[in-house]
Design a protein around this nucleic acid. Structure first.
Lengths: 201, 201, 201, 201
DNA sequence: AATGAATGAGCTTTCATTCAT
DNA sequence: TATGAATGAAAGCTCATTCAT
């Protein structure tokens, strides 16, 4: 807490560089983006990058850390309103799609790199993927116990099917579908209706 | 049509190299895969690659072309059974998930690169994405005209929501979810049930 | 033995680059010599160096290997004429000083780097230093048994004192003493006389 | 002479940094040692170094200057006891080997760099090497005139042969020979005996 | 048509030096 | 005077591409 002014300035500088990095990496991909390009976007010299990040890979890890924090907030949000399923569905989907919107470029960076970088994939799995699905599965098991879901439901499958429409829409946007990109709010409303139709009959 | 033996041999050799390329690129990503690695996997010399492909990017374009053909077959399949919606849904989803399964590595290669390569994204859009969604939108318009869908349905949105669960599941697998990877057939059945629940009430 | 022409050409090319490397490194030191400078001296492109050496350090190891071979020949030479001590001294010193003369630049490179590179020092010790002194110590022990040396002689010390004048002269030349450099043959003769005076009274 | 307190403090600080520099450079070599490492060892900031030394090379020159002073003291010591050759030999060798022991790290630093740095080599020659050998040569000429040495002795060669055993032993220690390092006192005694045997028959 | 050695542009990273505080 | 963040030149190394064989 008792951070010196120096530390706060340093922290701001680090965030500034990280934002610039996400920007430029989202445009060209991590591998094709050079440290020089990140430095130019951030308005600093090449070497300065290395005062704030150990190496180029460390920048990627920092972007993941940022997403991990966002996902942790998301999970807290979900847990805080598990009481009423109808409202939960509506609020949760809207909230999540808003999160996707706000972290869009970071998501793009991490996701595309996760596909092709096994070590990074492992980190994303451990830090984001697994915890999220574990909690969701527990929630689905509770719904089964309450009789809200058929007893023979496979929670692992059910939870992934539950997540799939939102992930699919995100994928369309990541691929650059202009209609999804331009009408994200309309898709949010449609997605809520779509999900209600499935889970609230 | 009257291809010489020479041309056929050349064609086979090209396909052999392309298969090797998909293999090794799926493991490490396009940017991190070297031409030398592709050549080694194909069992040819580095220079030989350049007798069959203009340059490294051209290999990526050839992988896209392969997916474009698969997608064209997929669309023919879909058009051939538009008569009965119930059967269509079942067959179409099963067919498409099987296609995903079979072209998995090529999909992974192209998708991860599409995210970050604007020029490639444009090609994927023109050759695969747009034609597929255009046909689907036309089909949804016909369903609207038939009264099978509400008159105020936004076809563009509806078609993307329709596609989203399958794409989302594909994304989970691409990200390396071991449960999805190991139980693709179970997910196919579950997805069919999931979609029937939505579209056949 | 059954080396292909290709392999022989490659071997020659490697030796050509190594010679160029010794030349330029002897002038400026290993650390200050750039790979680009070695390539220019050898008349090849930078990247070509890496077709023949794993990395810059590997060049240094190759220079050591060359000295190790020279030292092995030296030890064979010494063992082959242990019979007559008077002749041995004369021939051995002359032979060794000639070897120093011929491998001078390689010695300079390896020695200066050995001082400051612990890992390299270990290699030089294991491959050159220890074997040589081990054999010499055994020889001195034999001389003690024969009564040619006092029974209370410490062989380890004696052998290092025996080697010291020659090593000292080498050091003077390595430091660039122009008189030693210009009159190496005269020093050879003087060294023989000097050593005879000590060991043949 | 009338140095202010400020100047004396500055002088002490400079010596403190120089000692730290010798320490760390002796471990890793001049080229591989960074200014940051020297600063850390000295417990000051990087920039502070440049208040006491013009640049990195200047640190090396200061180390030479320190050795030059030690060598000047050595030469005074030698000149002061030229009267009795038997005692001179004993005292001089013991004294010099003690000096080597005490300035060991500085010697290592300067010597290894002298091999490969022409400009530094020139300085070492002018400041240490030449004056020392010039005086020694004059002394040997005097011995010739006295008839203590044969009239046909080449003083330049004789003086270098005289120095060679001690230099050779120093070289062995610089190269890291553990036996020489651990038994420097025993080697001192052995060296005295060795030299007496040569020069006092 | 196949080969693979040679090329050199361009990458990541280091580090001596400067200078505002 | 002391600091240490910022700088950017220059290093080692990789690899897509070419071309003589």
């Amino acid at each position: 807490m008792a951070e010196s002014i120096q530390d706060q300035i340093a922290q701001l500088r680090r965030e500034h560089i990280l934002t610039a990095a996400i920007d430029v990496i989202a445009e060209r991909g991590f591998q094709k983006t050079t440290v020089k390009q990140i430095a130019q976007r951030a308005g600093v010299a090449d070497g300065t990058i290395y005062n704030y990040f150990k190496n180029k890979d460390d920048i990627l890890l920092a972007i993941i850390a940022q997403l991990t924090e966002a996902e942790a907030r998301e999970m807290h949000f979900a847990e805080a309103r598990q009481v009423d399923f109808t409202n939960f569905l509506q609020e949760y989907i809207a909230h999540r799609m808003n999160e996707i919107d706000e972290n869009f470029r970071a998501l793009k960076v991490v996701l595309s790199e996760t596909f092709v970088n096994a070590e990074l994939g492992r980190q994303v799995f451990e830090q984001i993927y697994d915890p999220t699905f574990a909690i969701a599965e527990k929630y689905f098991e509770a719904l089964k116990a309450d009789g809200a879901l058929p007893a023979d439901t496979d929670s692992k499958i059910a939870v992934r099917l539950f997540a799939s429409p939102l992930l699919g829409l995100m994928l369309l946007r990541l691929m650059g579908d202009p209609h999804v990109d331009a009408n994200w709010d309309a898709y949010t409303a449609a997605m809520v209706a779509f999900m209600k139709q499935i889970y609230e009959q």
